[in-house]
Simulated assay, not measured.
Amino acid sequence: MKIETTLKDWETDQEVRWCPGCGDYAILKAVQRTLPQLGADPANTVFISGIGCSSRFPYYVESYGFHTIHGRAPAFATGAKLANPDLDIWLVTGDGDGLSIGGNHLMHVLRRNVNMQIMLFNNEIYGLTKGQASPTSREGTKSPSTPIGSYDHPARPAAFALGAGARFVGRGFDVSKHLPDVLKAAHAHEGAAFIEIFQNCIVYNKDVFNDFAAPKGAEDQQLWLENGKPMLFAKDARGIALNRDTLNLEVVDVVDGDWEAAGVIVHDVTNRSIAHMLVEMPFGPFPMALGVLYDDPRPTFEAAVLAEKAAASAGKEANLAKLLGQGQTWTVDGTAQDPV
């Protein structure tokens, strides 16, 4: 049931404590502004997090919440959803919390398709524990744990989500005016909706996303996807086409607005193959694909669990005493003699 609230109704009395300039502030405000537009009810909304800078989130949203243990937020969220399927659950995690110790749990909540919104804040670093390289840190990243430079190939959160069977994958970044639209689309999706949010760590990985996510001047490097619309960027002067010979994506120039003649693809959110290609596009030669990359619902995990429970209990009497007394039983009458 939708109710009327304002941004103030979603703000707590807790002092918001992130580093000055942290991208988490912008994400928090985007969520708090989005919730009233969804008609969300604070009494029916739950924010669940693990460990990390992002995981302070439940303290700052006036709703129910759990600040759980490292990497295990998906398990807690799954339990909450099964206990009360009517709850509106938002899972908050980071690239370290969700893809390192929590990668196994995140994979299973996605493949099971538990109905919730999963926001993964990706700053490509361990911010809370003082700047070590994380699973998403780029090759060559210098940090306390990789002083000469990381040689790990970074994980791609959106590719991970698709590979785990996610039915909704979106992308945004902390200060983008379009982030609320991605959050709304994720909330409308029935099932596990995964949103990767690029987030600026002002202390340990400052401006690492500036090439495409700077507050001003990076718009030409952003490909904002919209279902049924051509994949255009750089003020519609360039687009993404599929090379029919190599079956690879490529950047093409659009002359006089004729994107069809340039072969630009029309975005179809149900096309899983193209979604995989979009999340794997190397930035630099290509723009950063943002918005809703994939959205193709299927029945949810909790719906299947409830249906199985209903089928198993159909026609049966809920009688605990009878259950305990059935089968092989015996009575001790107090007259038995001790063995000699």
Rank of each mutant, 00 (worst) to 15 (best):
E302C: 01
A318L: 15
F301H: 10
K322Y: 02
L320F: 15
R298Q: 13
A318N: 12
K322W: 02
A307R: 10
L323W: 10
N319G: 01
Q326N: 15
F301Y: 15
G315C: 06
E308Q: 12
A304D: 10
E308T: 08
K322L: 08
K316F: 09
T300W: 01
G325M: 11
A307G: 05
G315F: 06
T300L: 02
L306T: 05
S313G: 03
L320R: 14
F301M: 04
A321F: 10
L320S: 07
A314H: 03
A311K: 11
A307C: 02
K309M: 15
A314W: 04
Q326S: 15
A311P: 00
K309N: 13
E308F: 07
L320P: 01
R298S: 13
R298C: 07
E302I: 01
A318S: 13
P299M: 04
L306W: 04
Q328I: 14
A311V: 09
R298E: 15
A304R: 11
L323T: 13
L324Q: 14
A314D: 04
K322G: 07
E317R: 11
P299H: 03
A314M: 04
R298F: 04
E308D: 13
A321M: 09
A312Y: 03
A314R: 06
E302Q: 06
A314K: 08
L306C: 01
G325R: 09
A311Y: 02
K309Y: 10
K316E: 09
Q326M: 14
G315H: 02
A318I: 15
K309S: 12
K316V: 12
A307V: 04
Q328W: 11
N319E: 03
G325L: 12
K322D: 06
A318H: 07
N319H: 10
G327F: 07
N319K: 08
A312F: 07
T300N: 01
S313N: 08
E317N: 09
L324P: 01
Q326A: 13
E308C: 05
A314P: 00
E308S: 10
A303Y: 00
L323Y: 11
A314Q: 05
V305C: 07
E317F: 06
Q326G: 15
Q326I: 06
A321D: 12
A321E: 12
E317D: 13
E302A: 00
